[in-house]
């Protein structure tokens, strides 16, 4: 018999508020700071606050605020899902959390070598951060992934990981790796090393940015078209852009929902294949050797 228990307690409510409030705050900030314009305009992220530092201008932009809101949302969601774990009496929440963990482990296990079995959390973090950031444009927010700097930060993280694993066999082996198969190809190999994060950045950011720009342009064009068609109606009735209702949503389904999830998945897949391919073939981790020795002693 299932024990009767309260479904939500105080901390749960705080966590749910912690998921919703940052997004509401971001929307409020956007509404407060948007300058009064007529018609549709394509601009970059809004600048909330800026100051001069010796290095250059320090700006708090919409992208930074939104990405922190997304980080808050994901952290609160993770804590919310993993509260009150129990072996005997799992709740729906726990089942959902286990489903997520199981699928992330499966994804990592299927695409990376067995040395990287503990990469599940990292890949899940990248996947959820990217997907939620891109999907935040559904709420009318400027999605953080349409800013090149934020995606470039994630890609440079991947670059650091790749270099770390390539350096596992020592710096000489690392430099020698560039001179393969012929020494003349050295500069080209160095360029291709830097091309990996750059291409990851541009792929993700270009897709999301182009989606938002095309959506805006089509909304603008539909507004003009409905002005031409329904402009003869008297007074206020003629000013309402009828065609803009609903029609851009169909495109948004592709550009905002499908493309966002697809790009998040591709970013995670590329991260996995690049990091996994960076480890030299002949490398045997030292921890495993110790582990094996211990096991032999136990046996």
């Amino acid at each position: 018999m299932r024990a009767t228990k309260r479904k939500f307690d105080f901390l749960d409510i705080i966590l749910i508020l912690g998921m919703i409030l940052p997004l509401v705050a971001a929307i409020m900030l956007k509404v407060l700071f948007t300058p009064e314009t007529h018609g549709v305009s394509i601009t970059g992220a809004l600048i909330f606050w800026q100051t001069d530092t010796p290095i250059g201008k320090l700006m708090i932009t919409e992208s930074i605020v939104n990405s922190w809101a997304i980080v808050m949302l994901i952290s609160c969601l993770a804590v919310f899902l993993t509260r009150k774990l129990s072996v005997k009496n799992p709740s729906t929440r726990q089942a959902f959390a286990e489903w997520i963990v199981y699928h992330c482990e499966k994804l990592v296990g299927g695409n990376m070598r067995e040395e990287f079995a503990n990469y599940g959390p990292f890949i899940a973090a990248i996947l959820s951060l990217s997907a939620f950031s891109s999907l935040s444009s559904l709420l009318g927010l400027h999605s953080p992934t349409s800013n090149i700097n934020i995606v470039a930060a994630w890609a440079s993280l991947v670059f650091v990981l790749i270099t770390y694993y390539k350096l596992k066999l020592g710096p000489i082996y690392y430099i020698k790796g560039f001179a393969e198969p012929v020494v003349i190809l050295f500069p080209i190999n160095v360029i291709s090393e830097f091309a990996t994060p750059v291409s990851m950045t541009f792929r993700h950011y270009g897709n999301i940015l182009s989606g938002s720009i095309i959506g805006t342009l089509i909304a603008y064009a539909l507004g003009l078209l409905s002005n031409k068609i329904f402009g003869f109606l008297p007074g206020l009735l003629g000013d309402i852009p009828y065609l803009r209702v609903g029609l851009p949503a169909i495109l948004s389904l592709y550009f905002d929902v499908f493309s966002a999830c697809m790009q998040a998945f591709i970013f995670a897949m590329l991260t996995m294949s690049n990091v996994s391919g960076a480890l030299p073939e002949g490398y045997i981790p030292k921890i495993r050797k110790k582990h094996r020795a211990k096991q032999q002693i136990v046996n």
């Binding site: 541009f202 792929r203 270009g206 940015l209 182009s210 591709i266």
Partner: peptide, 13 residues
């Protein structure tokens, strides 16, 4: 397809 799209996206950017 998403990988093949990359060059087009570069041009679009």
């Amino acid at each position: 397809c998403a990988i093949a799209e990359t060059t087009g996206i570069y041009a679009l950017v």
